[in-house]
Computed example of a mutant assay.
Amino acid sequence: MITAGQLRAARALLGIDQRELAELSDLSVPTIQRMEASESVVRGNVDSLMKLIEALDRSGIELIGDGAASQSGGRGVRLKDAALSESRQIKVLAKKT
């Protein structure tokens, strides 16, 4: 599984935009946009998700699940606590209104 946050972070680590990720994964830009707009776990058909994950893997991205150790020594991004993240999002939204 991959979350929308992991997808955005992976794209940022690679320094690519949604169009470039769409090309790498042989998906459409609107599909990438829908995936990144997901609330948590990215939803899509199995074929699209496999294309996405394989493209990220080929590009050097290792997806790390909750509580899992990284298999290599490369750099990565991990959210420490989902509840902490949600409280930060609520504060950001409150400031905007």
Rank of each mutant, 00 (worst) to 15 (best):
M1C: 04
I2R: 05
T3V: 00
A4C: 12
G5M: 09
G5D: 13
G5S: 12
Q6M: 10
Q6R: 03
Q6K: 03
L7N: 05
L7G: 05
L7Q: 04
R8V: 15
R8C: 08
A9K: 15
A9Y: 09
A9Q: 15
L13F: 14
L13N: 09
L14H: 08
L14W: 09
L14Y: 06
G15L: 10
Q18I: 05
Q18S: 12
Q18V: 07
R19Q: 13
R19W: 03
R19T: 15
R19K: 14
E20Y: 03
E20G: 08
L21I: 09
A22Y: 08
A22Q: 07
E23V: 13
E23Y: 03
E23W: 02
L24A: 15
S25V: 11
L27S: 07
S28T: 15
V29W: 07
P30M: 10
T31K: 07
R34F: 05
M35G: 05
M35F: 07
E36F: 07
E36H: 08
E36Y: 06
E36G: 09
A37M: 12
A37K: 14
S38Y: 06
S38N: 14
S38G: 14
V41W: 00
V41R: 04
V41N: 00
V41P: 00
V41C: 00
V41H: 00
V42W: 02
V42H: 02
N45I: 00
N45K: 10
N45V: 02
N45T: 02
V46R: 05
D47N: 04
D47P: 00
S48Y: 03
S48E: 02
S48F: 03
M50S: 05
K51S: 06
K51G: 00
K51P: 00
L52I: 06
L52W: 08
L52K: 05
L52D: 07
I53R: 08
I53S: 06
A55W: 07
D57F: 10
D57P: 01
R58K: 15
R58W: 05
S59E: 12
S59M: 09
I61S: 14
I61M: 13
I61E: 12
E62S: 02
L63M: 10
L63F: 03
I64Y: 01
I64F: 01
G65Q: 14
G67W: 06
G67T: 06
A68F: 08
A68C: 03
A69N: 01
S70F: 00
S70D: 01
Q71S: 14
Q71G: 08
S72C: 04
S72I: 06
G73L: 12
G74M: 08
G76F: 11
G76H: 10
V77N: 11
L79C: 13
K80F: 12
K80E: 15
D81Q: 07
D81F: 03
A83E: 13
A83K: 10
A83M: 05
L84K: 07
L84W: 09
E86H: 09
E86N: 08
E86A: 14
S87P: 00
R88V: 13
Q89K: 11
Q89E: 11
Q89A: 11
I90T: 09
I90H: 01
K91V: 02
K91E: 08
K91Y: 01
K91M: 04
V92Y: 13
A94G: 02
K95S: 12
K95C: 02
K95E: 11
K96I: 14
K96M: 15
K96Q: 15
T97D: 10
T97I: 13
